[in-house]
Amino acid sequence: MPCTRQTEQPNGGGGERNRRVCRRQIWRVEARGEFSGDEISQVTRLRCGGFIFALRLNHTMSDAIGIAQFMGAVGEMARGKCAPSIPHVWQRELLNARNPPRVTCTHHLLDEVPDTNDYPLHNMVPCSFFFGSTQVNAIRKHVPSHLSQCSTFEIITACVWRCITITLKPDIESQVRVIFPVNVRAKLSPPLPTGYYGNAIVFVVAITTAGKLCQNPVGYALQLVKTAKDNVTVEYVRSSTDLAVIKGQRDLNRVRCYFPTDVTHVGFEEVDFGWGKAVYGGPAKLWNGPNPKLTGQYTLCGNGSGKNEIVSILLPNVAHEIFLKELEGMLMGHAIGGPSSTPIKSSM
């Protein structure tokens, strides 16, 4: 459920505290039964003069960029505009499968991975921490030169994936994976029109063994993540669409897999309903459904020194301290072969 918290006081408090307040205030639709509508929204007014705008909708209607576009349009009209500055574009036929559908690329998304029960996912609880420019630069200094310009998402994902695997200690020969969505709006030819708000993403997979991931420097994981992301071409997008038609709807295999989602560039924090930009904008909580999985969400939030990325992940309760120790050690150079850098500051 995306939400934004806005306030009339520009220094309304720390980022993680705002996130916790937001989670507490969200009305739980589940309490009224299974959610089956198209969209539900709620506004909660706060004593400080600010408010929380929460939105819940069926994800088949839109991806995160489309949701942010919708919320931005609501904000524009709340500020007096008669119509959104970016008209909404339906045109779902632009992403139809080919006729006949044909799979022309390698896709590991639906691979059958045997569960050897060496990756315990019990008593899952959230863990949040800031990952700012200091931490990102500490990693950049110690990766191969051809990877020094990797994106922040790629660096964070490589670090977290590696630390999770070290923490949970699966068999060294077990296959471990990271699966994440890639926005394809600008990757198609021609690109999707501005204002397209449907799901315009494909999922990519990076695969290796637990032994290789843990025993190699973080640059190894970074290369895997970057390669998976760079493989998204026009043909890959069309092949993914055709695969979905041929295989039908299937649940993803969650065995030994990390699922990160990055909404730092979506624009939730830019939504303005007339009270200024949001203090926090993004998902209200991590996925923690009946089938546990290692989920990660990257959002923007303030921590007293400007905007930083806040990384929230679900981990088994017994793994928290081990994970944070591994991540801090990596950032201090213990696992990347370089001098010490500023250790990460946990917001737990």
Rank of each mutant, 00 (worst) to 15 (best):
G267P: 00
A54I: 13
M61S: 09
I313F: 04
V21P: 01
V225H: 02
P339Y: 07
G306K: 03
A335T: 14
R177I: 11
I52L: 08
A158F: 07
S340N: 04
L192Q: 12
M1W: 10
Y197W: 03
Q25I: 12
M124A: 09
L168A: 04
V225P: 00
L327V: 08
R140F: 13
G50D: 09
P144F: 10
T60K: 08
P170H: 06
P217V: 13
Q249S: 10
R102L: 14
M348S: 06
S341T: 05
P190C: 12
A186M: 13
H88S: 02
I139R: 01
F180Q: 04
D230N: 05
T342N: 02
G306Q: 13
M124H: 09
D272R: 03
H334M: 12
T157N: 12
T299L: 00
Q135L: 00
N58E: 14
C214H: 05
K325M: 13
D115P: 01
D242W: 14
K169S: 11
N117Q: 09
Q215K: 04
R56V: 13
K277T: 14
N58G: 07
L57C: 15
W287L: 12
N137A: 09
S148H: 01
Q135M: 07
L95D: 06
A319P: 01
H108G: 09
A221G: 05
V279P: 00
A284K: 00
A31P: 06
C163Q: 11
S148V: 15
L192S: 09
D171Y: 10
F180M: 05
P170E: 13
L57M: 10
P290V: 15
I65P: 01
G80D: 09
Q6G: 04
T261N: 03
E112F: 03
L121A: 10
K212E: 15
F70Q: 05
H146L: 12
K187S: 10
D118S: 02
L327Q: 08
D115H: 03
R79V: 06
P339D: 12
G248P: 10
E30M: 01
H265T: 08
G195Q: 01
E309Q: 09
A78W: 13
R162I: 12
N58D: 14
A221W: 09
D118Q: 02
V263Q: 01
R256D: 10
F35E: 13
V234A: 11
E328P: 00
L94E: 04
T134E: 15
P100E: 15
K141F: 14
I322P: 00
P290A: 15
V176P: 01
F268M: 03
N117Y: 05
V178G: 00
R5Q: 09
V176N: 02
G75E: 14
Q91A: 03
L252N: 03
G304Y: 13
A221S: 11
G282D: 11
S312L: 03
G296C: 12
G37V: 07
S340V: 11
Y220K: 00
K81H: 08
A64G: 06
P87Y: 12
L224S: 06
H88W: 14
Y119W: 13
N11Y: 04
K285G: 04
I310H: 05
V266W: 09
T295Q: 11
L192T: 07
D115G: 00
D118T: 07
I139E: 07
D115N: 08
P100D: 15
I310D: 09
M1A: 10
W27F: 06
S305G: 00
M1C: 13
H265P: 01
F259C: 02
S346V: 11
I336V: 13
S174P: 03
G337L: 06
